[in-house]
Design a binder for these strands. Structure first.
Lengths: 119, 119
DNA sequence: CTTGAATCTGACACTGACGTCAACTTTTAC
DNA sequence: GTAAAAGTTGACGTCAGTGTCAGATTCAAG
């Protein structure tokens, strides 16, 4: 699978896919001519990367985290070391705060929307 | 209350407070010399602004939304019009998706953290 | 009146994921 | 073999909120 197809079937731009490779999040075999060749597993991986970006993790954190996660076609290739675990624990706390904040903001929007539909 | 005090007691930088004013999110009376004078209500307002920023709304959305919310010292000065309601509904849907995504990512982190503490 | 702390405006820098364009090469289709 | 389509690298631009610095002004205290 080449980059165009992967882009189409994940909805992620080619630019982003090359960026992911540059950041060490995604790898690809190369054709003799230098074109990227992706496996089917890349689709799930790209989706997962997007998910983690959306959760506010930066490239370097994702790069360290990915090898510790069970992939669609394999067991995790690594276990998180002590340092990574402490980083991830911090991220998890941040995510928890973020969820709480989003729920509050959602409630605020609800109030305004409801007030408009009533009044 | 001047800008330094407001910054200290909200934890938001003076730079950001001036930016909020520039974006129409926060207003202040001025002393004869031009220094900003904030009321007590500004503290709650700044916290609310930060909350909405954290929920991913941009300045212009927040600017339109704020007058429709009940403030600590007052009833909403406006009701959202049809256009704003539809924008807010879109934002609410985005927030809902974001919460779901965060919960998924949180679960992923949990799995990795737990695997490390077990194995 | 003077001094120092606080504030003012305006401009430029940064971050990080990604858009976009240029110039070139590889692959694909006929 | 040739043209079109797809891919390559590299560089620079964007956005939005904020950091930071410079130079000028105002405020509070002695």
């Amino acid at each position: 699978m080449r980059i165009g197809e992967l882009a189409r079937c994940t909805g992620v731009s080619e630019r982003s896919l090359r960026y992911y490779e540059q950041e060490g999040l995604l790898s690809a075999r190369r054709t003799p001519g230098g074109h990227r060749e992706y496996t089917e597993a890349a689709v799930a991986r790209v989706r997962r990367i997007q998910e983690l970006y959306a959760a506010g993790l930066c490239s370097s954190k994702i790069a360290k985290l990915l090898p510790c996660m069970r992939d669609s076609d394999g067991r995790p290739s690594r276990t998180a070391d002590e340092c990574l675990v402490s980083e991830l624990t911090v991220e998890r706390a941040r995510i928890d705060r973020m969820i709480r904040d989003l729920q509050r903001s959602r409630a605020l929007l609800d109030t305004v929307i409801e007030a408009a539909s009533q009044g």
